[in-house]
Design a binder for these strands. Sequence first.
DNA 1: CGCGCCGTTGATATTATTCAAGACCAGTGG
DNA 2: CCACTGGTCTTGAATAATATCAACGGCGCG
Lengths: 254, 254
Amino acid sequence: MATHISPKSAGPATTSVISIHELKARCSNCSMRELCLPHGLDQHDLDQLDQLIASRRRLKKGEVLYRPGDPFTALHALRLGSTMTTVLAEDGREQVCGYHLPGDLLGLDGIEAGYHKGQSVALEDSEICALPLDRLEEFARHAPALQRNLHRFLSREIDRDHNMMLLLGSMRAEERLAAFLLNLAHRYKQRGYSSTEFVLRMTREEIGSFLGLKLETVSRLFSRFQQEGLIQTQGRAVKLLDVTALKQLAGQRA
Amino acid sequence: MATHISPKSAGPATTSVISIHELKARCSNCSMRELCLPHGLDQHDLDQLDQLIASRRRLKKGEVLYRPGDPFTALHALRLGSTMTTVLAEDGREQVCGYHLPGDLLGLDGIEAGYHKGQSVALEDSEICALPLDRLEEFARHAPALQRNLHRFLSREIDRDHNMMLLLGSMRAEERLAAFLLNLAHRYKQRGYSSTEFVLRMTREEIGSFLGLKLETVSRLFSRFQQEGLIQTQGRAVKLLDVTALKQLAGQRA
DNA sequence: CGCGCCGTTGATATTATTCAAGACCAGTGG
DNA sequence: CCACTGGTCTTGAATAATATCAACGGCGCG
């Protein structure tokens, strides 16, 4: 594999002119940069990082990024849209174990086995950058800051999962839903969107699977929260009305 | 910090004689080597790895390796014994999120924040090697095999956590306990111990917290499994009598 | 316009928790 | 050596939480 950018633009272009498509494609220019690459990378690092992106994919709603058994070769950086990650039990049971927004890194669980055990599906039209692990590691050997960032990413996922275990293992249904909504609020805020108004990209059933509940329970809770004035919903559109009360429910300090 | 082995043995020793204590301390000689360092490290790598171990600690049963808020500086390799890792919610709720055996790496969730969010406690007298992350990363920059292994470790923890989310989110109490017992069986087997007879180091309450159940439920399930001839128990000593049935219960192919 | 998925709501069933009492067991001190 | 004590474990009965079954309404897409 060459370490250069492979020329992908179809139309004619001089070396001094970068097409809009290419411009959009660069990490150094990506709006999610602050999330993807939190700290310590200088311009030179960023330029190099641009070069290791192997492909940029667009996924339509419902398309699968990877499925169980697919060989693992790269991490995937979600640039735009949202995806849902699931694990499957041998008996076919399915558990949603991640709801990803732009800036998230997907597929981290595939490194160990060399193939994917779970599945990742686009919940809306999405854009994803593939970062081949080999190249990423090679680069990390020369850029301590990126090496640390990679480790931070992996560690963050572990931390996130432990919090999900806490949620699934010791919270009641209403507490789970409150925590779920607050988590989304937090992440939308990080990304510069409204933290109190957003549109869920999952069905009630998917939310239920994520939270270890049945879809009817989720639906009932949405209704109850609305009745109690905590939120306002219209289908998948949610508006948080009483964040303090939600935090109290979720066991978080108000 | 020097990169040399700091002389720790108290008694007199010539440079050509290595005390038993020091000998035991080496990764290259550790019985858990195959688990800690699965693949691709040559002798030179191993020698170097020995040198980055900062300390070796013995923990008595009940002693805490790290607590929430402790600064994160190193990963910890469990050499001997067993530990339990927990996360704490803001409101004080506690969730056991790991039950570790020799060869496991602890504290992976601390990299991101730079401090530990959870807590790790020895369940019996244990021995632990501290691997400072800075040094580990520096070493990884020169040893691709170790770099990959480190990533594999982090990825394995993510994979493990996703399986726990599956267990907590979509299995019934009896299925959870069956899966728990089978998981232990598998790991004891990997380590060269009996896969059908072992001693649990956790109380019923701790097992319950791990599995998202109450201690009474766990106790009742042990009784029922015994009555049904699936296992035989005597306090914390467990003998698996019908692994096939347990697998069926846990939703695994027999 | 109609079909299929999605969401809501009610009635009922099931599962696990809670509350309570007592047995067991190991370690300690008289 | 034995009684005492605190923690752990077991078991039963009542209760609460969530799942299941069922019916229907609505929305979006073809």
